Simulated scan of single mutants.
Amino acid sequence: MSVRILVLNGPNTNLYGLDPNGPYGNLTIEDIAERCRARAESLGASLDFRQSNHEGALIDWIQAARTEADGLVINAGSLSYHSIGILDALSAVALPAVQVHVSNVFKREGFRHHSPLSSVVTGCIIGLGPEGYEMAVDALVAKLTRG
C-alpha cells in the first residue's frame, strides 16, 4: 500500500517565483509541485499538491484528508500566523503533518515568529527554501513507513 501525501499551500504561494530576488526564490509553485511529486514517487508514495488563497478551501481539504491521505505537508502562508480554523482542522484530523516555511521567518517581521499551527504538527521545516517541501515529503514518508 502506497503512502498518500497531501501538500497544501495557502495565500500568495501561487506567486512564488515571480520575484527571483525575493525571499521565496525563483521556483514557481508548479515547479515545487513537480519536484514534490517526483520525490514522492521515488519513495514509493503518491502525492496530491494543492493551493488556495481561501482559508475555507484549506480547511475543507484538511478535513477530507482524514480518508484521502496518510499525512500532510502544509504551508498555510499568511494564515500560519492567525488561522484558528486551520489549527482546529489539523488537530481534529490528527494526521502526521509537517509545516513548511520557505523563508526563515525568524529573520522577518516579529509577527511571523510564532505560528499557532506549529503546536499541532509533527514538525516544522523553516528557511530552507523550496527544498523544504521535498524535505517534508522525505520526513513524512519516513514517519509513515517506519513509525
Rank of each mutant, 00 (worst) to 15 (best):
K107I: 01
P96C: 00
R108H: 06
A94T: 05
Q99T: 01
S83C: 07
N75V: 13
V105F: 02
S103A: 14
S78R: 12
A94W: 02
I84W: 02
V98L: 00
R108Y: 02
L90K: 08
T67D: 14
S80A: 14
L79S: 11
A92F: 00
V93E: 12
Q99Y: 01
V73P: 06
L87P: 09
A69R: 11
S91D: 10
A94V: 07
S91Q: 14
R112W: 03
R66V: 09
A89I: 10
S83V: 08
S80I: 07
L79F: 15
G85I: 05
I84G: 00
L95C: 10
N75T: 12
G85R: 09
R112S: 01
L72H: 05
S80V: 09
V93L: 08
I86T: 06
F111E: 04
P96T: 04
S78H: 13
V98G: 01
V73N: 07
E68K: 13
G71F: 08
S83H: 02
L90H: 08
D88H: 12
L95P: 06
D70F: 04
V93M: 13
E68H: 06
A76T: 14
G77K: 11
I84A: 12
E109H: 05
R108C: 03
S83Q: 10
S103T: 09
G77P: 13
G110C: 09
R108G: 01
I84F: 11
L90P: 08
Q99G: 02
V102Y: 07
G110M: 12
T67G: 02
R108M: 05
Q99R: 02
N75S: 09
L95S: 06
P96W: 01
D70N: 12
E109S: 07
L90E: 06
V73I: 15
E109V: 10
H82V: 03
L90R: 06
S78M: 11
V102T: 12
I74E: 06
D70P: 02
G85E: 10
A92V: 01
D88I: 08
I74R: 10
N104Q: 06
S80N: 15
A97I: 02
L95G: 07
A89T: 08
L87H: 15
D88Y: 01
G77W: 14
R66F: 03
K107W: 04
S80W: 10
G71S: 06
S78A: 15
